[in-house]
Design a protein around this nucleic acid. Structure first.
Lengths: 220, 220
DNA sequence: TCCTCAATCAAACACTTGTTTTAATCCGAT
DNA sequence: ATCGGATTAAAACAAGTGTTTGATTGAGGA
């Protein structure tokens, strides 16, 4: 059976782990949500912790398969690749078509790491970081200093992650309606334009010229 | 000292809550670290949850008193106020002279909120957000659209928080030595220059085109 | 001195936790 | 039909949880 109880356990566990954290999630709750017996988790995974890492690995393997390698058309300009990259990151996090726990459990792992964090970094974060670095190298020149490039990458990713990690704070801070008005497309355009302007590849924000979405070709 | 064990309990609780999270922290561990009896927490606070919110409130009251209201000299240019503000945020988080759990427990609360989150936002986040908004209004003009201003503020704060929230990921990603090379001063300069350039108030990163630093007053 | 009352302590409480055990069930191969 | 391995089920396990109890302390006031 594809719909094994083992898979049902991983799905239920991921959802509950992502929502309540590792310690607060009980195997009884997980088994009940998975319509499985209490002993099932120990039969299939041996112990609770193994079920947790199985859920994390499943989440990142799904994230891998759901996102088609981020391979952009070769004739796409670096600027447009950056724009598409930022939009995709935001969509992946805020437009939850897939089960929301896939990224929730990984963000929890990245903020308060357990032993599964290293695997997440290697299998999920590093490929994404390499993709970002490739774009930045095309944008800034391949002899750009590595440390500066790292910081620029962190500046971009930090902007994106902020809207996900601290979403509840933003809601409380600016109100529900103002938060709902921040659509993914609007956020992606802002972050892209903000970052491009910081790198000198687009007109700066700040002066209220109704800036149309920048679609300039990259300067090589 | 009037409330001896009560304060010891709050200190021990804050440290353990920040490190292990609410559920994983046991009152027995807390009482042992505080050299108090197991019944002390229930005698002084009634229940575990009240001790937690007491620790959170203590952390934010300390954060308030430790940071002298962020009142800059009146003749300081908005650009320099922004630079000082960013540096101060980073110092507060990464240069731990004070007990590290003061901000650790609040970041945990902001990322995965409990019922204490609203209080943290109102008493700690909102004043800081107002300070940031005041600087941005001086920088961009007091008739700047609110939503755009919010997003710019989030872009700046997101860059800062990234280095704290995802510090373990950064360590794994670029290595210990490269991470240690990212001093607070270096990060503050980068984030400030990056953000100023994005707003068109400083030369852009990316190319060494020495555009003279713009330190003009806000255009109204 | 006696009393009071807040504070501390050891012990036990009732409950949940993760895990194990043992028996029952399914299901394809013989 | 029968066997045997794989899976599920119910119950019990030991350990840990937050919380409560009731006794004990020790300083301050009448």
């Amino acid at each position: 059976m594809i719909d094994d109880t083992r898979q049902r356990l991983i799905d239920a566990a991921g959802a509950i782990f992502a929502e309540k954290g590792y310690e607060a999630a009980s195997v009884r709750d997980i088994c009940q949500q998975a319509s499985a017996n209490i002993a099932a988790v120990n039969y299939h995974f041996g112990e609770k912790k193994s079920l947790y890492v199985a859920a994390v690995r499943h989440a990142q393997s799904c994230a891998d398969s759901e996102n088609p390698e981020m391979t952009w058309p070769a004739d796409m300009s670096p600027v447009e690749r950056l724009r598409a990259h930022i939009l995709q990151m935001l969509q992946r996090k805020l437009e939850g078509d897939k089960p929301a726990w896939h990224l929730g459990i990984m963000l929890r792992e990245m903020a308060f790491p357990t032993e599964a964090c290293a695997a997440v970094v290697e299998d999920y974060v590093r490929p994404m970081a390499n993709g970002m670095r490739a774009i930045l190298l095309d944008l800034l020149g391949h002899d750009f200093p590595e440390e500066k490039g790292n910081m620029i990458g962190f500046s971009i990713v930090g902007q994106v992650l902020f809207y996900y990690v601290h979403q509840p704070v933003i809601r409380l801070l600016i109100g529900e309606s103002a938060h709902d008005a921040l659509t993914v497309q609007k956020l992606a355009d802002h972050i892209t334009n903000f970052s491009l302007a910081a790198m000198g590849l687009a007109p700066s924000l700040g002066h209220s010229t109704p800036t149309p979405p920048i679609t300039t070709k990259a300067m090589t």
